[in-house]
Computed example of a mutant assay.
Amino acid sequence: MVDRRVHEGEAVIERAVVDGRPVDADARLALDARYGHFTALQVRARRVRGLDLHVERLQSANRELFGAELPRPEVLGAIRAVLGDDLRDASVRVYVVAGDRPRVLATAAPPTEAPTGPWSVTPVVYQRYLAHVKQAYGFQQAHIGRQVARAGFDEALLTTEDGLISEGSITNLGAFDGERLLWPDAPMLHGITMRLMERMDVPQERRPLRAADLPRLGQVFLCNSWGLMPVGRVDDVPLRQDGKLMTRLHEHYDAVSWDPLD
């Protein structure tokens, strides 16, 4: 089972900064209740995969939610500030939250790697409002995550009323069937790891997918800032496992360059 505390952003926060200045837990929690957006990233040796995509995500959401530009140096400055001079590896989140003006909050927690072994998933009827925005502090997704964990699953597949899969509660879903990489054709957050996998040199297609379709596919996987995770079953139905296909996916992902923060 995946540790849902990490899944829901409840890992132990080592430090936090607001507008580049260190804050205590109470100040951070006060801001946590605010309206905003964020991005989650893994830092290794003070480098980040897809750094430009993370900055672009924050800038686009900031224009949409706050009608304001977010300078790249402000984003990078927040990450550097929360890492300080000593942290080289960490799980970092950069939030922009409402206040007297939009405030940039960054948190650092211990680094997280993709769990090994196939994940179990179950469909849940739920569609996020403004699905393309990575929204801060989503009660609904946290609740769904806790409920499916209690039922013995690692992740929820969010679906429409008629069963179309859009995404996981904090992941994107993909399926690699032979030579074709499939993604759901539904409203979703266009995740950073998904965008990096879309650069893989194989035919790719957006297609309506339902839970009943998954057992017929060659390999189903989830992806987020942790990396790539194979899906082993949906409800009680086992899914095919193809080590060669997962190796191809991992080889592409592992070859993505890490962009320096300094």
Results as ranks from 00 to 15, higher is better:
residue 76 L to Y: 04
residue 210 R to T: 08
residue 199 R to G: 14
residue 250 H to Y: 14
residue 2 V to L: 15
residue 97 V to C: 11
residue 216 R to Q: 10
residue 214 L to D: 01
residue 253 Y to W: 15
residue 249 L to A: 06
residue 232 G to N: 05
residue 29 L to V: 14
residue 207 R to F: 02
residue 175 A to Y: 02
residue 78 A to D: 04
residue 233 R to V: 09
residue 182 L to Q: 00
residue 63 R to T: 10
residue 184 P to V: 13
residue 256 V to K: 10
residue 129 Y to N: 15
residue 111 P to H: 14
residue 198 E to H: 06
residue 248 R to S: 11
residue 51 L to W: 01
residue 225 S to H: 06
residue 117 G to K: 04
residue 256 V to L: 14
residue 14 E to K: 09
residue 232 G to V: 12
residue 6 V to I: 15
residue 73 P to Q: 08
residue 259 D to T: 13
residue 45 A to P: 02
residue 128 R to T: 12
residue 228 L to A: 09
residue 26 D to T: 10
residue 173 L to A: 10
residue 6 V to W: 10
residue 38 F to V: 11
residue 46 R to N: 03
residue 47 R to L: 06
residue 68 A to E: 03
residue 218 G to A: 14
residue 93 R to T: 06
residue 3 D to G: 15
residue 220 V to Y: 03
residue 228 L to S: 09
residue 138 G to P: 11
residue 142 A to I: 04
residue 137 Y to G: 12
residue 229 M to T: 11
residue 206 R to Q: 09
residue 243 G to Y: 01
residue 165 I to M: 04
residue 102 P to F: 07
residue 221 F to Y: 08
residue 19 D to K: 06
residue 127 Q to C: 14
residue 89 D to T: 08
residue 255 A to G: 06
residue 220 V to H: 05
residue 42 Q to G: 15
residue 109 A to R: 10
residue 258 W to V: 10
residue 98 A to D: 03
residue 59 Q to R: 12
residue 129 Y to R: 15
residue 75 V to C: 11
residue 166 S to I: 09
residue 114 A to Y: 08
residue 89 D to M: 05
residue 91 S to T: 08
residue 106 A to K: 01
residue 243 G to P: 08
residue 184 P to T: 12
residue 177 D to M: 07
residue 16 A to L: 05
residue 153 F to P: 01
residue 182 L to C: 08
residue 105 L to G: 08
residue 101 R to W: 03
residue 51 L to Y: 02
residue 233 R to G: 05
residue 159 T to E: 01
residue 201 D to Q: 07
residue 90 A to T: 07
residue 151 A to M: 06
residue 186 A to I: 12
residue 65 L to T: 01
residue 95 Y to F: 15
residue 77 G to L: 10
residue 23 V to T: 13
residue 197 M to Y: 04
residue 255 A to S: 13
residue 72 R to G: 05
residue 169 S to N: 13
residue 178 G to I: 11
residue 147 Q to C: 15
residue 213 D to R: 08
residue 9 G to F: 05
residue 86 D to R: 15
residue 133 V to Y: 04
residue 33 A to W: 08
residue 9 G to R: 05
residue 21 R to V: 14
residue 51 L to G: 08
residue 145 G to V: 12
residue 28 R to G: 11
residue 83 L to T: 06
residue 245 L to M: 09
residue 223 C to S: 10
residue 38 F to E: 04
residue 109 A to M: 11
residue 258 W to D: 07
residue 176 F to R: 06
residue 220 V to D: 00
residue 159 T to D: 00
residue 234 V to H: 03
residue 68 A to H: 04
residue 239 L to G: 10
residue 257 S to A: 15
residue 49 R to I: 05
residue 25 A to Y: 00
residue 131 A to F: 07
residue 118 P to S: 12
residue 256 V to T: 09
residue 20 G to S: 14
residue 73 P to G: 14
residue 105 L to E: 01
residue 54 H to V: 09
residue 215 P to C: 13
residue 248 R to N: 06
residue 122 T to L: 12
residue 261 L to V: 13
residue 162 D to E: 13
residue 45 A to L: 14
residue 237 V to Y: 03
residue 188 M to N: 03
residue 9 G to D: 02
residue 32 D to K: 13
residue 143 H to E: 08
residue 1 M to Q: 13
